[in-house]
Write a protein that binds this DNA or RNA. Structure first.
Length: 697
DNA sequence: CATTTTAGGAAA
DNA sequence: TTTTCCTAA
């Protein structure tokens, strides 16, 4: 329930900036011919034309709505353009399915430079030899997939080069590297990421009036709400359109009180509202009916949790443990990747893992009872997350079946899983010092550690040390040190005993020093491509093991829904930002300076590209056209400019610094050095943040 | 239960 | 604290 907060005494000015049909705009930027056309973006799921997740304004005129399926949209607007959100992970397979390799005539030069391990180079033209290998008709499926991968990656690398002026290397193989490449795209262009970008453009989204106003005139307009206008504004405004009242509460208010608009609420005394909806909600309601809200603008830009989930509606419900585990694996991998990314990018660690599921049981036609969600401590690493997720799920399933008097064990009698999600929460900033971080990465007995896990630990350790020097990840790796503190859990025991999933022994808990984490000071390092995906073969080349040398692909793929998801709908728009960073001020009367921190008089813009706020040329053009001076910020800049929690090292008051714990001081000093070095060498490219260091193998 | 997926917040 | 429920986009 909403909670009433007293309005602050000072007058505030709060803006709510909201991207118009964001995904549609993303697609229209990618395909400019769609501009001005009725357009909607549909999710990967093909059922009845796919679910609409964004609808352009031209299409809305025809009555197309979000929550329609593509087919319905076509009914009301036959000429609508439905754009599928691209799926990236399976790109090689799709290419193989769609493009007969042997009939490919133009082959990318870059792809021809690939190294094919094990391919004989007997004096002939090397590129011709590679070409023949890539397109040879008698290749088996696996080799053909690799060939597709090589072609795709060659394109990708050229694009990276073009847009960032950075070279990169790549490995293409049948183990996880195969999709690590594509993961490289998806990680940075997935919908979540875009969502983050759009959130970062929000200058506050809670304020009721600001929120109201921004929704009032869309798209591409802005609305101001003088307080004198509030009463009239709310008089005829539908209650259900108020933030927080779009659901059950709004409905019951309408029926309980026989009211329709916010104005209708004015007649009810606060006491009456409290009586009906509780003290908090009643007061809150009384206030918002008068346009009063003390809610503070949330300055946080980073999410507080990460989750990956999928529904299995209708007959796609999962009816066996292996099927569930298969999907838990997919979801755990997705989650783990995001956690990795968050760790590396934002220096944060999640501490809690939760598994949610929804289920039905056909025996009882009482149908859909709630499946309990379970949570426990989170251990880093895909394999561990999966392991724990399975345990959590099983605990939930036992409870679910138990509470429904169903004996389970082997036979999946009558139950089905219709939704699964794995999420990570309790995210905290990394406490100072590698030592405490390493607690999160304690290894269990690792006699049979797979190569994959070894790599993972390598990555984690690398990440843990990487904030001393982003560019030295591979040279500064320290593995988990023996921990003399009593926190260390005995090898082989599971962190999950806390929630009763495992016989409990001594309860141990990883603690974070609150003070230290609060005192931590972060800054964003310059985006860098420090981690190439292949170390093996030097610069700017692709390396490909022949199939004989490659580790066998272990995908069991026994679930029918395999092709429908695979981490789903990743945006695949690589923005074509003009490289005009030098012209960023020209032509824009600079009101941007008002967005800088007051103390910014001391900092040198050029020396801190990570906190520069600028408008792109496209944005300026649209401003000129509209004849308005709307301040728009490049999302990347905003994302890299989290004033409220990020400091430039040289703006830290030495007096304050000296009062911090010694290890934090050291850390800050360590941070300063690489930044200064970096500034002398390279300037951040506009879109460079799409290519932040990523988990490479 | 064929809107899907992701997130945040508050109450129980 | 964990779990559930509600809300939103």
């Amino acid at each position: 329930m909403p909670v009433a907060r007293p309005e602050s005494s000072d007058s505030r000015v709060i803006a709510h900036v909201d991207m118009d049909c964001f995904y549609v705009q993303v697609e229209q930027r990618k395909q400019p011919n769609l501009r001005g056309q009725p357009t909607a973006v549909v999710q990967y799921n093909n059922w009845k034309g796919g679910g609409l997740i964004a609808v352009g304004y031209e299409a809305r005129k025809f009555g197309v709505k979000r929550s329609m399926r593509g087919d319905e949209a076509k009914e009301v607007c036959p000429q609508i353009h439905l754009v599928q959100v691209p799926v990236n992970r399976e790109a090689a397979e799709r290419m193989l399915a769609e493009t007969p390799l042997e009939r490919l005539e133009a082959i990318n030069e870059e792809a021809l430079k690939s190294h094919i391990l094990g391919l004989e180079m007997d004096g002939v033209d090397v590129k011709e030899n590679v070409r023949n290998w890539l397109v040879r008709p008698d290749a088996d499926r696996r080799d053909k997939l690799l060939a597709c991968g090589a072609l795709l990656v060659a394109e990708l690398r050229l694009q990276v080069l073009e847009e960032t002026q950075f070279t990169c290397s790549a490995g293409i193989a049948h183990n996880k590297v195969e999709y690590t490449i594509l993961y490289f795209i998806s990680l940075h262009l997935c919908p979540t990421e875009n969502k983050c970008l759009s959130i970062s453009l929000f200058l506050g989204f809670k304020q009721i009036l600001a929120k109201l106003a921004s929704g009032m005139n869309k798209p591409s307009q802005q609305t101001v709400v003088p307080s004198s206008s509030v009463t009239k504004l709310l008089q005829n405004f539908p209650i259900k359109k108020m933030k927080q009242l779009g659901g059950k509460l709004g409905t019951s208010i309408q029926t309980d009180l026989a009211v329709e608009t916010v104005g209708d609420l004015l007649q009810f005394p606060e006491s009456k509202l409290q009586e009906l909806y509780g003290v908090n909600t009643g007061t809150w309601l009384w206030n918002i009916a008068r346009g009063i809200s003390g809610d503070e603008v949330e300055e946080r830009l980073l999410p507080k949790s990460h989750g990956a989930g999928k529904t299995f509606p209708g007959c796609s419900a999962l009816r066996s443990i292996p099927a569930v585990e298969n999907w838990l694996k997919e979801l755990s991998e997705e989650l783990s990747e995001r956690l990795q990314s968050d760790l590396v990018k934002n220096k944060r660690i999640a501490q809690s893992l939760t598994v949610h599921a929804s289920a039905y049981k056909s025996s009882d036609n009482d149908s859909h009872k709630k499946f309990p969600s379970k949570s426990g401590p989170l251990r880093y690493g895909t394999a561990k997350i999966l392991e724990d997720a399975i345990l959590l799920f099983q605990a939930g399933l036992r409870e679910y079946l138990g509470s429904h008097n169903l004996k389970t064990s082997g036979a999946h009698d009558g139950w089905g899983i219709t939704g699964l999600s794995v999420s990570a929460s309790k995210i905290v900033a990394i406490p100072s010092g590698t030592r405490s971080i390493s607690n999160y990465f304690q290894t269990q007995d690792n006699n049979d550690v797979s190569a994959k896990e070894t790599n993972e630990r390598f990555d984690l350790a690398g990440a843990a040390t990487s904030f001393h020097s982003e560019s030295e990840i591979y040279t500064e790796v320290h593995f988990t040190e023996p921990d003399e503190s009593p926190k260390k859990e005995k090898e082989g025991s599971h962190a999950l005993r806390k929630c009763g999933l495992v016989d409990s022994g001594t309860q141990t808990q990883v603690c974070i020093d609150k003070q230290a984490s609060q005192a931590s000071i972060f800054y964003e390092t310059e985006p860098t491509l420090a981690r190439s995906m292949s170390q093996q073969d030097g610069f700017a080349q692709e390396t490909k093991p022949s199939s004989s040398g490659a580790r066998a692909c272990s995908n069991a793929d026994y679930n029918e829904s395999e092709h429908s998801f695979h981490s789903g709908e990743f945006e695949h728009n690589i923005p074509k930002e003009p490289k005009t960073s030098t012209s960023k001020q020209k032509g824009t009367p600079s009101i941007l300076k008002f967005f800088q921190r007051p103390s910014s008089s001391t900092f040198q813009r050029q020396e801190h590209p990570n906190i520069v706020l600028k408008a792109s040329p496209e944005q300026r053009k649209s401003q000129a056209k509209d004849g308005e001076s709307i301040v728009t910020a490049n999302s990347s800049d905003l994302q890299l400019r989290p004033d409220s929690w990020s400091y430039n090292a040289d703006e830290i008051d030495p007096a304050i610094l000296s009062q911090l714990p010694l290890d934090i001081q050291e850390e800050v000093n360590a941070w300063m050095r690489p930044q200064k070095r970096a500034n002398t060498t390279k300037k951040a490219s506009n879109i460079a943040h799409y290519f932040l260091p990523t988990k490479g193998k």
